[in-house]
Design a protein around this nucleic acid. Structure first.
Lengths: 226, 226
DNA sequence: GCGCTATAAATCGTATATGATTTGAGACAT
DNA sequence: ATGTCTCAAATCATATACGATTTATAGCGC
């Protein structure tokens, strides 16, 4: 359901276990940005040796969740404003396309479910609940792009979400003063899909929807626009 | 210049050396798709232990260049038609956007250089030289997207190219009967950029240019269209 | 007190060693 | 000939050991 909380299935190597474990700790906030990941410490915690932990950390580095320097060690990556913009921009691109590719495959049930989720998001605005809002937002978009027939593309979408949800605090989808617009755009997007709109139109709607959130976020922070 | 032949700079760990070394062997064709990568064998060859080699291979797996199975081992990934389509599709997306983002930053000199490269590509058509054609094609597009200010996006473009150039035989950009059209589209793209066209127009031109090559390739192979 | 050096502690990087898993060859029965 | 069983060799996965590098600390001269 959620992107990064998926539990690994089947029997995994210790390196893979460490990989998932550390990623989970980053996602759930136990290890927040800047936290130093000491090999031996994590190894003791997981009751494994340092070798598979090192491997896990190098993989997380490749995913962009962790920074790593030779002979220095690893720490949970910190997204500055610039990297946030770049990640959101990239996500808007791949998610928009993934949504457009999956739109023709969505059945009526799925669309109805998406509308339901969007209704719940609207509720969150009533009794101010940005955390649920963000969680539902992910659920909403997942519903729309998960049917994408291109697994590479889908992988990029997941990586983008993972990076954002792990490194920004957990309410990055909620920008005060923008949330209402966001819900409205969701409805518009669903209408487009339901009416079998041109794929490019769907793509751009989904893309601009996310870029809109980004811009709102930047405006709020007085960060120079992208 | 080329995407995947960049030599690492500075002092690297043995794991990183192994990483680059294996990738180079894949790129230059020494290790072709399906080739089995045996840890101990590579370790002996590089005069290191198996530990850093394993790390390197796991990273290459994450990049999609090798497949790896627990207790079985690694082999250079094999792109079937489907994966080829997915990779090309994804590349068309990210490269198109990267080109559109970098277009406004390109100076006259760079554009002139691109035209020069494209002229050389046209020459390659005269004295049938698909290998140079493909190399120049990469050079041409690199020139256009390297100025992209979004490093994440650029990274995705590089990964896409790396995957394609490593796993398809080295002339994947050259599809007989399509190459002339390709050169013409390059000129059209440069004109758009030079005239300061709308970014979306540049993006779609670049995207469709690559998708055109993909479609031509598929048609030639009688593979069902994407 | 401030800065410098020397030393110790912590940590990383990887070679080596060992157990676990898979693969392949030969023996054997059918 | 075919299938299957057994065992040995190859290979992977990881714990352990040790050297290399960095960082922290204490001492010393000024």
């Amino acid at each position: 359901m959620t992107v990064s909380t998926d539990s690994p299935t089947g029997d995994l190597s210790k390196a893979q276990l460490a990989h998932h474990w550390i990623r989970s700790r980053i996602s759930d906030g136990t290890f927040s940005p800047g936290y130093r990941l000491v090999l031996g410490q994590i190894a003791r915690e997981l009751d494994v040796s340092a070798v598979p932990v090192r491997e896990a950390i190098r993989l997380l580095e490749a995913e962009g969740l962790v920074t790593f320097e030779r002979n220095i060690g690893a720490q949970v990556a910190m997204l500055d404003a610039t990297e946030y913009v770049h990640t959101m921009q990239t996500l808007s691109l791949v998610e928009g396309y993934a949504t457009a590719l999956s739109a023709p495959v969505l059945d009526a049930d799925t669309l109805e479910r998406a509308r339901q989720i969007n209704a719940e998001m609207a509720d969150c605005l009533g009794h101010f609940d940005p955390v649920s809002f963000t969680r539902l937002n992910l659920e909403f978009h997942s519903t729309l792009f998960e049917a994408c027939p291109n697994p590479h593309l889908l992988d990029l979408v997941h990586r983008g979400w993972s990076r954002l949800s792990a490194l920004r605090d957990s309410i990055f989808s909620f920008v005060p003063g923008r949330a209402h617009e966001s819900v409205a755009e969701h409805t518009a997007l669903l209408d487009l899909i339901e009416n079998g709109a041109d794929p490019l139109q769907v793509e751009l709607a989904a893309r601009n929807h996310r870029l809109g959130t980004l811009d709102a976020f930047l405006a709020r922070q007085n960060t120079p626009a992208r």
